[in-house]
Nucleic acid binder design. Structure first.
Lengths: 227, 227
DNA sequence: GTCTATACATCGATAGAC
DNA sequence: GTCTATCGATGTATAGAC
C-alpha cells in the first residue's frame, strides 16, 4: 500500500527546498532513480500514511521516520522541515486527483454529453478519494488542520481543481440543462462536499465506491424523489 | 459573539470531572450563576472560539486563557485537562444542533408532510451550522482531529443526531416518497455531508444560510436537472 | 479563585562522526 | 546518506503563595 509517489517533481521548487541535483535520469516519466529519490519517496509514502491516520498536528517526524524505517534526523537530509513534507504530500495529492478526473473525462467518446462527462468526473473523483490512496485521503483530512499561512499558500493550487468543476457545470448550464433557480457556485460546492465528506463515513464492505458514485450522480441530477 | 454556553450541565459527568457543587441556584433554566460558573462559561466560549479558528491540536491552553482573559493555570481550577474542555465543547455543540433541528420540526403544523419536515430540518441544521456559533463550527471542524480514543467515545452521542435524520428519511421512504434505487443510509450521509461541508466554503455576504438551505433542499429532493 | 514559578515531557531541528 | 547525541523551544500540568 505504499511505494508510489512523485506524480511530478516540484514544479517551481518550494521556497526553501534543499536543492538536490537531478543527476542524469530522473524525469517525471523516467525510470532511473537514485537512492536518495527512492528514500525520499519512501518518506513521502510514510508521511501520507501517518498524516491520513493521525492528522497534521499529531503527526510526529518520528512517526514518519519509524514507518519509513529510518531515523528522524535522516529525514532532514531529504526535506528541509516538517512543513516541506506536508507541502509535497499535498502537491502530489492534488495532482493525482486532478489527473484522475481529467482521465475519466478523457476516456469518454468525443461526443459524450455534458451529463455523461459530469458523471464520469464524479466517478473519477469519488473513486480516487475512496481508493485508499493515502496522499489523497491525507489531503482531505488534514487540509483544514494546517497552520493558516500554509493553508493560504495552497488555496491557489486547490482552486485549479475547482476550476475543472466550474467549467463542467458552466457547460451544463449553457446547454440549458440546469434549473435556473440554482446557483452554480453553490451547487458545485455541495457536490464537492458530498464527495469529500464521504471519506468521513465510507467503510469497506458496504457499497463500493462506484456504487456510491452512482448514488451521488442520481442525487445530484435527479434528487431523491420518486416520480 | 460569546458569553452563552451551557445548554445543559454534564449529564453523567465525564469520568474525571472535578466535582463542583451546584450550590443553590444553578439549573439548566435557572439564572443564578456563581462566579465559578460564569468563568467556566467564559472559558468554554473562548475555547470554542479558538478551536474553531485553529483546530484542535493547534489550540493551546494559553490561547484559550488569553481570550478568556485569565491565566493558563487558572483554567485548571475549572477543568481537569485540555481534553475535558474539548469534551464539554462538543457536548454543548451536539446538544444545540439537536435542539435546533427538533425545534425547527416542532414549529411546523401537526399535519405537515414528511417533505416539509425534512425541509425544516435542513433549514434548522444548516442555519445553526452557519450561524457563526463557535461551538458548532468548532465541533464540525475539529471532530476528526481528535485523538482516536476521544473521538471514539463521542461517536455514540454523535449517533444520536444521526438517528434523528434516520427517522425522518425512514418515514419518507415508507410513504413511498423516495426512489427505490437509492440507499437510505448513503443518502443520509450525503445530505449531512453537503450541509456540514458548507462551513468550509460559506462566506458571509453571498447567499444567506436560508438561501443555501433552499438550494440544498432543491438539490436533495429534485436534483439540478431542469424539467 | 487567581497568581507566580517551575517541574517535566515532547518534539523539531542541528552538529558532527562515520 | 545515515547514525548518535543534544540543544532549545514549546506546552501541559502542578505547587503553593496570596
Amino acid at each position: 500500500m505504499n511505494s508510489d509517489a512523485l506524480l511530478k517533481r516540484p514544479a517551481s521548487a518550494s521556497p526553501a527546498q534543499k536543492v538536490r541535483v537531478p543527476g542524469k535520469g530522473v524525469d517525471a516519466s523516467g525510470k532511473k532513480l537514485k537512492k536518495a529519490d527512492i528514500t525520499r519517496v519512501r518518506i513521502l509514502d510514510a508521511a501520507a500514511h501517518v498524516f491520513r491516520q493521525k492528522g497534521y498536528a499529531l503527526t510526529r517526524i518520528s512517526d514518519i521516520a519509524k514507518l519509513a524505517r529510518t531515523q528522524s534526523s535522516s529525514i532532514y537530509y531529504h526535506f528541509e522541515s516538517r512543513e516541506a513534507i506536508v507541502e509535497e504530500v499535498l502537491r502530489i495529492a492534488n495532482g493525482r486527483t486532478r489527473e484522475r478526473v481529467i482521465n475519466a473525462i478523457g476516456a469518454l467518446p468525443r461526443d459524450a454529453s455534458v451529463r455523461d462527462r459530469i458523471g464520469a468526473a464524479i466517478h473519477g473523483h469519488l473513486e480516487i478519494v475512496l481508493a485508499g490512496d493515502h496522499y489523497i485521503a491525507a489531503h482531505i483530512r488534514i487540509f483544514d488542520q494546517l497552520p493558516a499561512d500554509l493553508r493560504k499558500r495552497f488555496l491557489r493550487v486547490l482552486d485549479e481543481n475547482a476550476e475543472l468543476w466550474r467549467t463542467l457545470l458552466n457547460e451544463a448550464q449553457s446547454e440549458g440543462m440546469i434549473r435556473s433557480d440554482l446557483d452554480l457556485s453553490v451547487i458545485r460546492q455541495l457536490l464537492i462536499g458530498m464527495m469529500n465528506w464521504s471519506v468521513e463515513w465510507y467503510r469497506v464492505g458496504r457499497l463500493s465506491p462506484p456504487q456510491i458514485a452512482d448514488q451521488i450522480a442520481v442525487l445530484f441530477f435527479d434528487g431523491v424523489t420518486k416520480r
